[in-house]
Design a protein around this nucleic acid. Sequence first.
DNA 1: TGTATTTTGTGATTTTTTTCACATCAAACT
DNA 2: AGTTTGATGTGAAAAAAATCACAAAATACA
Lengths: 227, 227
Amino acid sequence: MKKITKYIIKNSLKRIFLYRASLVRLKMMGVEKVFSYTLANETGVTSDQVRKDFSEFRIKGNKRGGYEINELLGNMEEIFHRNKDHNIVLIGMGNLGLALSKYSKFVQRNMNVVATFDIDPFKQKMRSDLPVYSMGRLKEIIDRFKVKVAILAVPEISAQEVTDELVRVGIKGIVNFAPVLLKVPADVIVNNVNLCDELESVIYCVHKMIKADGLKNIELLYRDMKY
Amino acid sequence: MKKITKYIIKNSLKRIFLYRASLVRLKMMGVEKVFSYTLANETGVTSDQVRKDFSEFRIKGNKRGGYEINELLGNMEEIFHRNKDHNIVLIGMGNLGLALSKYSKFVQRNMNVVATFDIDPFKQKMRSDLPVYSMGRLKEIIDRFKVKVAILAVPEISAQEVTDELVRVGIKGIVNFAPVLLKVPADVIVNNVNLCDELESVIYCVHKMIKADGLKNIELLYRDMKY
DNA sequence: TGTATTTTGTGATTTTTTTCACATCAAACT
DNA sequence: AGTTTGATGTGAAAAAAATCACAAAATACA
Ligand SMILES: NC(=O)c1ccc[n+]([C@@H]2O[C@H](COP(=O)([O-])OP(=O)(O)OC[C@H]3O[C@@H](n4cnc5c(N)ncnc54)[C@H](O)[C@@H]3O)[C@@H](O)[C@H]2O)c1
Ligand SMILES: NC(=O)c1ccc[n+]([C@@H]2O[C@H](COP(=O)([O-])OP(=O)(O)OC[C@H]3O[C@@H](n4cnc5c(N)ncnc54)[C@H](O)[C@@H]3O)[C@@H](O)[C@H]2O)c1
């Protein structure tokens, strides 16, 4: 396959999320305008980086005047397609699935969990406000609500099998909580959230630091741990 | 502050986690030996990268013979300080905290949640096998069990305040589920897990892809999603 | 109106990361 | 034993990302 040399998406995208989190918070605090260095301070990156990232996504500010928070957030909504609503489904209503189904932040961000699914649809039915369907109804619901993205919270052992089914019915993006590497076609995006890895990486860094006795090479460790 | 030019930890560390996940799975399937390209195939990186990453951490294989899975896993345990047990605490026993407290993978990986804490210790007491303490007993327990790492699952609004307390009692690493950027001293590591961001980034990529009509620049989008 | 000041936006430069390429070694085979 | 084969390990080269640095623009103020 021909090698593509210029990649569009880089760490910039990840940092845009950081910036937005800050902006939302600042806005709540009544701030209306920020400068690149405000955001830099808030997020721990450099102000050059902030401006470069904005440049990447064609986000413009006002020379000398900084950025209007509302405008900036508007730009970001655009980037993240937040103007539209996004229907998602949640597969697996165990411990984690149940917690996720009660998470209200999704809705605040225009992401609606329209349905949940479990191999055993009766087990959880009474515990949630959301409908819990059997897997047999997956295609029907996904088609009806034009769902393209799924959250996967089933046991490790079933994760690949369920993924295959999701792909078959037309899901194009998966946030996967099972600690397995899912095999998917090239046109399906998987984002893995692996809690044990997160913990271990913190433990690793903490240990390195303690060993290094809190001295200058803390900087070393930070680099990739910032987000 | 003097600029340090050579960083030790890079994306290599993140990929080491990937490799290990594969190795664990392969081992379960009865495989005993892998080559760099085996791991490459499994994880979606190149075999050069795998070898380079190993090189980074001084992990050695056998020329022509590849790597013994057990040996490799041993090396990784070493890297992650898995030989020792690690006591951790969980703060916030709401929806998410409860799910996390029931997660058995931690123990399998030598990470013990020794105690959980909540501002309201009675609310959850009966719902968990783990002790749920009031925040007042934080220092006592942390000292007793020599805890250095905490999982934070409290509401956004309390996250910073609880973090300050954690830092005060000597916690050096935090896995934070609240969607806020925590302010911590330079010697404290924070790993943020932000579910909404994960979802939105998937939605972003899925949309880009759909727009791009599933064609070659899918590659573009993948780059930073693979880690 | 003109000058000083401040902050953006982006090429140029530097640093970091990835990929390449090949010498080196270990096993397998003749 | 000698030769071929196949994989590692790592400097060198290429690519990507971050940082620098400064022109350009907008505002403030004299
Ligand atoms: N509990 C946690 O805090 C936590 C944290 C991080 C990751 N995880 C991961 O998330 C996943 C779920 O964890 P959990 O603790 O909720 O497990 P769980 O066993 O409580 O729940 C799993 C649910 O999936 C359902 N299920 C099983 N097979 C299915 C299939 N083929 N199709 C549809 N549904 C199916 C089960 O009926 C059950 O309700 C696991 O992979 C786990 O490793 C859990
Ligand atoms: N529920 C989810 O699926 C989910 C997913 C991702 C992120 N999160 C985030 O995780 C955090 C917890 O979410 P949740 O749904 O479990 O919320 P929740 O309200 O169910 O639970 C929060 C718990 O924290 C406790 N608490 C509040 N203030 C405290 C304090 N000062 N000290 C100690 N404990 C305190 C509360 O008593 C409660 O038990 C939130 O920040 C949320 O945004 C939740």
